[in-house]
């Protein structure tokens, strides 16, 4: 029996906030356009959500995870009097670049909590405050990975972050953030390690990000409201960043032999980042 015929089922559909996986509403523009048509087509509400937790799962910083968000952040920073809060960014969010991406710097607020407990507190407060349009939080520690935590914690103050979130965020914590985000009508972007994809999360939207060699980013929506997991979607930035400058190889660079410039393809597997993905205070030559 179809739901149209069963009055009980129909009532349930109307009253309980249930949705049918097959009826993702692409016409209704309730989200914030991501600035990339190919992505907007796949997102419920034809854009980034206005609230709720969005998880971005990736391991290597630098693959375009911020440029993916930049058009939406730029629009939000200029169209609303609410703030954009960045919690525990791993590096300095660099104002000249943010400005060039169209983000109004006055809307930004950077928060660097000293430990994981404070970080969670700050996230929940910011989300529930009703004064923020977006709260971005970097919680990308691989769950259970001990490799750098022991070493990092001995290296001076400010590294307590690993302590609180050593095993990543728990189900319960994300649920709290989701509730706060709905209450404060703030969009929560949570950066998490790719390994977190293996565990369940109450987040409304989960996207895995992967690198691409030609000025794009490869993403795969793992979970969305009103839809199934997608195939890999290639989002092209069209910013000319990831393409060699045409005449570049012809330039005379004294200290650089010409053939150095020509790409030598990956000889090693792609799994290791250049340096630890946490705060660069921990960085030290190997």
């Amino acid at each position: 029996m179809s739901p149209q015929q069963n009055p009980n089922l129909q009532k349930l559909m109307q009253n309980s906030g249930l949705w049918r996986a097959s009826s993702i509403d692409r016409e209704l523009q309730s989200g914030i356009s991501s600035g990339f048509d190919v992505l907007d087509r796949e997102l419920p509400g034809a854009g980034w959500p206005a609230d709720g937790v969005t998880e971005l799962l990736y391991d290597t910083p630098g693959i375009g995870e911020f440029r993916l968000l930049a058009p939406a952040l730029a629009r939000l920073s200029r169209s609303q009097s609410r703030r954009i809060v960045l919690i525990s960014p791993p590096y300095i969010p660099y104002p000249p670049a943010l400005h060039a991406l169209g983000i109004d710097l006055d809307a930004l607020l950077v928060v660097r909590p000293g430990n994981g407990r404070d970080m969670l507190w700050a996230m929940e407060q910011a989300l529930g405050s009703k004064g923020c349009s977006v709260v971005l939080a970097w919680a990308n520690r691989t769950p259970g990975r001990k490799r750098s935590t022991g070493q990092a914690q001995q290296k001076g103050p400010g590294n307590g972050l690993e302590k609180g979130l050593e095993n990543g965020l728990s189900d319960k914590q994300i649920r709290r953030l989701q509730v706060a985000s709905k209450e404060g009508r703030s969009w929560h972007i949570l950066f998490r390690p790719a390994a977190a994809a293996r565990v369940h999360s109450p987040a409304e939207l989960r996207i895995h990000l992967g690198p691409d060699t030609g000025g794009a980013i490869n993403l795969k929506i793992l979970k969305r409201r009103g839809g199934w997991e997608t195939d890999v979607i290639r989002v092209n930035f069209n910013d000319g960043l990831n393409q060699p400058t045409p005449d570049f190889t012809k330039l005379f660079i004294p200290s650089l032999k010409r053939n150095h410039v020509i790409s030598n393809q990956a000889r090693r597997p792609l799994d290791r980042p250049v340096f630890p993905a946490t705060a660069d205070r921990n960085l030290h030559p190997e």
Partner: peptide, 23 residues
């Protein structure tokens, strides 16, 4: 609401842990 949030962050985390950015 934004100011209230800033006040709370300041108070719990300290003034150094909470700042804005400028060119």
């Amino acid at each position: 609401n934004g100011l209230r949030l800033i006040n709370m962050l300041h108070t719990r985390l300290g003034a150094q842990a909470c700042f804005g950015l400028a060119l």
